[in-house]
Nucleic acid binder design. Sequence first.
DNA 1: TATATGTTTTTGGTATACCATATTTTTAAT
DNA 2: ATTAAAAATATGGTATACCAAAAACATATA
Lengths: 229, 229
Amino acid sequence: MLQTTKKMIKMSPLARQSLGNQVADVLRAQVLLGELKPGDVIPERETSAALGVSRTPLREALLILEAEGLVEMLPAKSPVVANPSLLELTQMLLVQASLEALAGEIACVEATQSEIEAIEDIHNKMVATAHDADPIAFFEIDMSFHEAVVAASKNDVLIKTHNQFHVRLWRARFLTAGKVASRETSVGDHASIVEGLRRRDKEKVSSSMRDHLRKVIDNVTAMYAHQET
Amino acid sequence: MLQTTKKMIKMSPLARQSLGNQVADVLRAQVLLGELKPGDVIPERETSAALGVSRTPLREALLILEAEGLVEMLPAKSPVVANPSLLELTQMLLVQASLEALAGEIACVEATQSEIEAIEDIHNKMVATAHDADPIAFFEIDMSFHEAVVAASKNDVLIKTHNQFHVRLWRARFLTAGKVASRETSVGDHASIVEGLRRRDKEKVSSSMRDHLRKVIDNVTAMYAHQET
DNA sequence: TATATGTTTTTGGTATACCATATTTTTAAT
DNA sequence: ATTAAAAATATGGTATACCAAAAACATATA
C-alpha cells in the first residue's frame, strides 16, 4: 500500500510528487529486481488494487514506464513488461557505448580530482569483490562505476539519457554479468578507463569505454545464442 | 475538435491509437510550429475543452510530452511548454552530435547505395534552395537531411532517441538557422558528410557530423548572447 | 496607505462510473 | 463430437465528479 490514509504525510513542497510517480518508482524497482519479469502482464485493475491506489495513478505510472521503454502498452491488451529482442539489446548497447564514450571524454575535462578519486574507489572495491560469491553485489558495483563516470560529465541531459538505457539494459546485463569468467575482463577494462581518466586522456577513455561495451554486447549475444530463446 | 461524435470512425485495428496519443500529436505539432511557445502554459480544463476531449486523455498527452521533454509539469502548477536554457540546449546538442556521429558511422556500413543517393538528393535540393527566400522550407530540408542519415543506420533505438532530441531542439535550431549567413556553412558541412558517406569513410562522416553540430552550438550560443534572455 | 488575514476561486491530483471492444465461455445445431 | 454462433465477461479507454492545495482577491486593521 502506498497511501491507505486520506491524509498525506506532511511533506516539504519540493519533495511532493504525484501518486503516479510513486507507483512508477515501485514498478520500476520491481522490474529491476526481477520481481516483474519480461513478458509479465500488468492488468490495471488487479495491479492498482494490489498497490492500494485507483487505476488513474496506476495508468499514469504505466505511461511513464512506457515512455522509458520498460513497459509496452498495446491497444486492448494488458500492459506487458518489455521483453527486448537481442537485436534491440544490441542496438541499445551501441547507443549506450557512444553515450558513455562521450561522457568519458567530457569527464576528462570536467571531472574534479576528487570525482576521479571516487571513481577509483569504486574500481578498487570492484577489484576486491571480484572473487567473492555474491553476483548481485559485484554487479551493482559494476553498474555504479559506469554511473559515476557519466555523472562526472556533469551533463544532465547526458546523465538522464544514459540512465534510461541503463535501466532498460539492467536485466540483460545482470544475467550476463553472472558469468564469473567475465569478471576478470570487466575489471581489466575498468582499470584502463580509470587510467585514462587519471591521465585525462580523452581518446583513451573513449576507446576503452567503447571496447568495454563491445565485450558486453558479445556476452549478451553469447547468452542469447546459448539459451536459444 | 478531435472527436465530436460518440462513434469513432472505423479504423483498421493497427491504426487505432488512444485519444491521448492523438492529442499528444496535436500538441507536439503546435509546439514545433511555434503555435505554442516556450513558457506558454497548458491549463488542463481549458485545453481539453478547446480540443473537445476530457481531461483524462489530455493528461495522458501531457505525460507523453513531459517524458519527451517538451512539457514540464510541476506540482500545483499548470503544465508549461519547456523553455530550455542555453546550457541545456548545449548539452542536448552535444549528445545529439554523438548520436549523429554514431549514426553516420553505422550508415557507412549499413546504408544501401540507394539510401545514400537519397541523402545526396536531399543535399542537392538544399543547395538549390540555399538562395531562396523561404527560411522554413530551407530549414525543413536541412532537418530532413539529418533524419535521412540517422534513418540509414537502421538502428531503431538510435533513430528514436535521435528523434526525441530532434524535436526538443527544433525551435532553437529553427531560430538560429534563420540567419542566411549560416546557410553557406551548413551546405558545405553537409557536402563533406555526403562525400564521406559516398566513400563509406566512417572517420570522415563521424568527424564531419561532430564539426557540423559544433557550429550549430556556436550559432545557438551567439543567438542567446545577442538577444540576452 | 500598507500590510496582514481571511475568503473565494482556480488548479492539478485522484477516485469512480461508464463505455466499447476483445476474449472467453456456453450453448445449440449439424 | 465438432463447430459455429451468441451471450457473458474481462479489459483497457474515456468522461466526470470530487478533493486538497495553492493562488488571487478582498477586507479589515494598524
